[in-house]
Design a protein around this nucleic acid. Structure first.
Lengths: 345, 345
DNA sequence: CTGCTGCGTGTGCACGTTCACATGGGGAAC
DNA sequence: GTTCCCCATGTGAACGTGCACACGCAGCAG
């Protein structure tokens, strides 16, 4: 049964063409779903492709079209629940749209390593960029480079309106803060994320805005690093004064550390101190006590980002898809569980 | 200053060659670090590259060499801490070795979607494969396809010796189980992961092996789904009988759910019931009580996988690197915290 | 019958790179 | 002084695909 052609080399459109008795261009037309093709011809070519196990050569196609059909994801902390969920959704959406996803992690936090990661992606001729690296510096580096490819960021900086798509962090933070105030708390601390993180800053702003809107005297936020470890240690420090009845933590992990410290000091959550987190990681519902927090739909965000980006690329290669890019931010949602209650005194 | 050449199109080696006054082949040699090149020539070419902002075209190179310099990662649940950490390490190692990483998620759990994800990767001409999709089915699909490219799996199935690199799950599970037995527990349950997960099965086997080695009567393991949610519900069921003093959970998330259920029933961990987990996710140290668990170094595993794979590919394009592939499994480590204690009765 | 239009298909080139081979020049060995 | 070889460089082809263009044929209007 062996055809006399292929000698170790993968079949090309020319091989298919020869066997099917057409020109290579006709085969190319079948691949690209050209409208004017006789059905019988198309079918014959498809059959031969099947028979020869033909697979189009990505490199050749990219070379001649100068489209890589690849989008890059610039990220940091991609092992974290939030980013990881978004990336997964992005990949799925990209695959559907006929695109590939390349991710580059920012290793250190200096701007050199940001540039390096970005350069790495650009070297691969990515056609678009999704940025889930929420440090302020990333955007400085971005502005500096004046990218000539479409990109979307998952954080709102306020300076790149067209390119931004995010969960409304300020609204989420206000939700959490209002919840505490409505329960009757007046002495509320905010454990913020690192200052150079856009989202950390937005959550902090939301906290401060809501506090002042409700005429509650604000306290200076404490700056953390997102980790449970930090939450634990800062919690131990805070408890030496104990001049508060509630804490709004900028993420769930730090909230977990805080609760650990509080409980270790012999106090109870929420009886003595209320704690509210941010993100709603899957484990939050089973913290002890189950954590009141603000849910973000990371996957939805990822999907919308890709939709926006593909729209900008004029993508949509395969069937299906259809829907135009839906903009607008994703709204966060307060999930009240058992780590918050009215203050006891 | 504008050179008369490039009209919108990115500069190619021929453009560089023309400006530098050499042939395109010489430029190519500079790119590929050919030994016999006069230093002055090399420098001149490099200068022109800089000046023209030349960037090599990946597609053209891939076309002629028929090497994509891309490796694929087949994964499921990539949003989870373990896989995500490994992927991040893999990416970093790949970048260093001059490779790109493409990940494909297995969406559903049927074998069709496994084949689909695998096909997606193969379509991109990946040169190697890392498999972090620990379902048994994946390996069936793999065997069926009889891949002609190098691959490494992050789970040990026992049937693919050469390609396997993993944390020794059995040893880890035995460590955890022995710890409980040494504390004096005799009525120990194991909350296992889904049966079709290789690691779940290995951990279960480790549990059973250690129990029988120590002559402790074994109980039938309970099958879970990795989620905190499941841990919580199964915990509530188990507590109706309460014929045990310790539980070894197959991962930390389920352990968290278990503790939630135990505490909700008015019992204490570890006073009434000891719990030990598996993975040592970063949050585990701040569970209440801090969780005794088995630590796996996911990042190290990822790094070794890439090393093994690059070795098989004869990779190592850039400088540095050096070290030959180190095989051998990564050993897990028991981390004793406060969720385990001697039984009270 | 002639000319025009559009459909289905074929021909040749271009994309940017590497590979195989060719070439000239300079030094070492005879 | 001739021969040989290696170094430094150049020449042309090839990789697999898509694009611009050309071509024949059928249908239809004039």
């Amino acid at each position: 049964m062996s055809t006399e052609s292929a000698r170790g080399r993968a079949p090309s459109i020319r091989d298919v063409a020869r066997v099917a008795g057409v020109s290579h261009q006709t085969v190319s037309r079948v691949l690209n779903e050209h409208p004017s093709l006789r059905d019988s011809t198309r079918q014959r070519v498809l059959d031969v492709m099947q028979e020869l196990q033909y697979r189009p050569n990505r490199a050749a196609r990219a070379l001649v079209t100068s489209r890589s059909r690849t989008i890059g994801v610039l990220t940091s902390r991609s092992a974290q629940y939030g980013p990881a969920s978004s990336i997964q959704a992005i990949e799925e959406a990209a695959r559907e749209g006929g695109y590939l996803v390349l991710t580059a992690n920012i290793l250190a936090k200096d701007s050199d390593s940001i540039r390096e990661a970005l350069a790495h992606l650009m070297e691969q001729d990515v056609e678009g960029l999704v940025i889930i690296a929420p440090q302020v510096r990333v955007f400085d580096a971005l502005a500096e480079l004046s990218l000539d490819i479409p990109f979307v960021t998952m954080q709102s900086t306020g300076r790149l309106d067209d390119h931004e798509l995010s969960v409304d962090q300020i609204a989420g933070a206000r939700l959490a803060t209002r919840h505490l105030i409505e329960l009757g708390h007046r002495d509320i601390y905010h454990l913020a994320g690192p200052q150079d993180w856009i989202e950390a800053e937005a959550r902090m702003r939301g906290f401060l805005e809501e506090m002042s809107a409700q005429d509650v005297p604000t306290t200076a936020p404490i700056l953390g690093d997102w980790s449970s470890e930090f939450g634990y240690y800062v919690g131990r420090e805070m408890l030496r004064l104990r001049d508060f009845t509630a804490i709004f933590s900028s993420n769930d992990q730090m909230a977990l550390g805080l609760i650990h410290a509080i409980r270790e000091a012999g106090l109870d959550v929420p009886r003595d101190i209320s704690v509210v987190g941010f993100d709603d990681i899957p484990e939050a519902a089973h913290f002890w006590p189950p954590l009141t927090t603000v849910r973000q739909d990371f996957a939805e965000l990822g999907r919308r980002c890709m939709s926006l980006l593909l729209d900008g690329l004029g993508g949509m290669h395969g069937a299906g898809g259809g829907g135009g890019a839906y903009r607008g931010n994703v709204m966060p949602e307060l999930v009240v569980r058992q780590s918050t209650a009215a203050p006891s005194r």
